[in-house]
Structures are given as C-alpha cells and as structure tokens.
Simulated assay, not measured.
Amino acid sequence: MHAGRSYSFTEFLLWTRRPLYALILLDVTLVALYQLGGLHWLAVPWNVIFMLGTSVALIAGFKNTQTYNRLWEAQQVWASITAASRAWGTMCRDHVGHPGQTRRLVYRHLGWLTALRYQMRESRPWETQQQLPNVEYRKHYQVPEKVRTLDVELIKYVSPEERSRILGVSSKATEVLSLQGEALRALLDDGLLPPASFAELQRALRDLHEQQARSERLKNYPYPRQYAVINVIFVRILCLLLPLGMIDLLAPMNDTVGGAMAGHMLWLAIPLSVLVSWMYAALDQVGESSANPFEGGANDIPISQLCGTIERDLRQLLDERDVPEQQEPASPIVL
C-alpha cells in the first residue's frame, strides 16, 4: 500500500512505458502507411470508433470497480482480524486463570497471524508480480515474507514441537487454530478455564476461522478470467483501430487548415491516438494490479505491518516491557 501522498506522474509513466512504446510504434506505422504509402482504405469511420470506445470504457470501468471492491473487502477482512486479535488477547488475559497459559495462547495466536500472512503471500498463476513492470518496481520496497522464512518466524511464537506440526501440513494457519482448540480443551479439563469462558473463547476461535476463510477466498479465487480477458481483448482492438478513426476525423482538415499544418493534419493522429490509447491501456493495467490484494505488490493490503501492530498491542497487554517501538517505514510502500 502506498502510504505517501501519491504516486508521481514520472513513476506512473515509467511503470506503463512499455505499452506506450508499443502504441507509438503502432500509430506511427499506420499513419505512415496511409499518408506515405497511399493505403487510404485503412481509414475507419469515426462513428465506429466512438461506439467501440464507449463500450470499452464501460467494460474497463466495470473491471476497475470490481477489482477495487476486492481490495476494499480485503481491507475490511484484515480490519476484522485486527479487532478479533485484540479481543482474543483481552479474553485470554481475563478468563484464563494462569499467566503462563495466557501467554502461550496469545503467542500461539501471533503464530497464527504469521502463518496466515505467509499463506497470503504465496504465488498464484493468475497474479501479476512476475510481470516485468511490477518486477522493476519492487526495487522501491521489500516484501517481508520473501526476506525471512516461515520456520524462522514461527519459532518466536510456538514450541519446536508445535512448529514441526504446523510446517508438516498444507494449511498451516488452520493447524495453528487447531492447536488453540486443543489447548483450550486441556485448560477446561485441568480446571484453569471455567465452562462459560471456554464457550466464549471457542466462539472467538470460530470467528477467527471465518475471517481466515474470507481472506483465503480473496487469495485463492481470482477476478473472473472471462471478464479479465475480454477487457484486454477489447482494449487492444480499440488501440489498433483508434489511429485509423483519427485519420478519418482529421483527413478532411488537410484542405481547410492553412499555415505550416496545411496538408499535414493527419500526423496529429499519432499523438492524439497515442494519448487516448495509453489512457485505456493504463486503466487496464491499474485494474489488473489491484485485483490480487495479497500478492506482494505495491498496492497490497499491508498485512505485515498490521501483524506487527497486533503483536505490539498483545505483548503490551501481557505487560511485557521489551516491546520494540514501531519503526517508520523506509519506503512509502508499506506491506
């Protein structure tokens, strides 16, 4: 997530420069074929381009609305996880009759957050982080889950035996919640947890399961591919035909405009069509980069920072005195 004022125009232009290069080459070629090669049959009626542009604008707007909704839902899910985590820490402190057991429950919850955020950073075939513009932009920030491994992080929160059990299954976050359930049952059997408190903590555990499932749904189910591909196809068709429509629009002006532009108005089709086509292509690129809110991109939900904030809150709840202060991020991109 960009936590600064905004992306600069230069950053955005560099990020989208490859489609821009292709558009410039395409438009120069088509206009030159018409003007210098005499291929006047290339011109397309402007009314056709107008109708196509309207349709593409509607489809592009639909895609960007839906991808933004995915991003917004992910933010809501992790806001709920933050609230549920604080509630879990408070209930463990107030209901469990043994400080050592309270600490184990809280730290195991931190292990769940760690396992979940690593699970959210796993790669999926439809994600965009392997595309060259996004690879280049990663020089501006680091993804914490790509720097340190899960097994190193888990040892801070769970015992070696529990870590081995967690790492040995595919759904590691679910295994941590299973361990929490077993621990609550053991506390109930040992008389350290009243039945009413056990029921309350079980309800909190069920809520964590539900929040994990919501986060996993956003991670494991992409923006529908049929809508994604049709948007790309229509944008490319528009970018191909737009300069030909500009030719049809500007050709009559060759005989009516005087001065230096007399007879050369067609060349204006190049900058005008490049500008409009770039706007559509950039809009599609922005929508695609926002569709996967946990992939490690610059527009992701900052789950690593949220987990760090939750850890500080819960450790202070346990009256720990060696809790490090939150450090200012070195980059405007916060993950």
Rank of each mutant, 00 (worst) to 15 (best):
Q305N: 12
V176R: 01
I333A: 02
V274S: 00
V169S: 08
G287I: 04
P332Y: 01
A43F: 05
D190S: 15
L218N: 04
C92Y: 01
W267H: 11
N69K: 13
L275W: 11
S331N: 06
F9P: 05
L318S: 09
L205I: 04
N69L: 15
E11H: 06
F198A: 00
S85V: 05
F62I: 02
Y107I: 06
L25D: 03
D284W: 03
M246I: 02
E288N: 14
A213T: 10
F234L: 15
D284P: 02
L205P: 00
V56I: 01
F9L: 14
G191Y: 10
V44P: 06
A269Q: 01
E200S: 06
A199D: 12
I49T: 00
V229T: 14
V334S: 03
N254P: 10
W267E: 07
P19G: 07
V106E: 01
S290M: 14
N292T: 12
L71W: 13
V152D: 12
S277T: 06
M279Q: 10
M279K: 11
V77H: 00
R70D: 01
R163D: 06
K139S: 09
S159V: 06
G168H: 08
Q212P: 03
W278P: 07
L266M: 14
L306G: 01
T174F: 04
W126P: 13
E122R: 14
T65S: 15
G287T: 05
A262Q: 15
P293T: 03
I237P: 04
Y68F: 13
V158M: 11
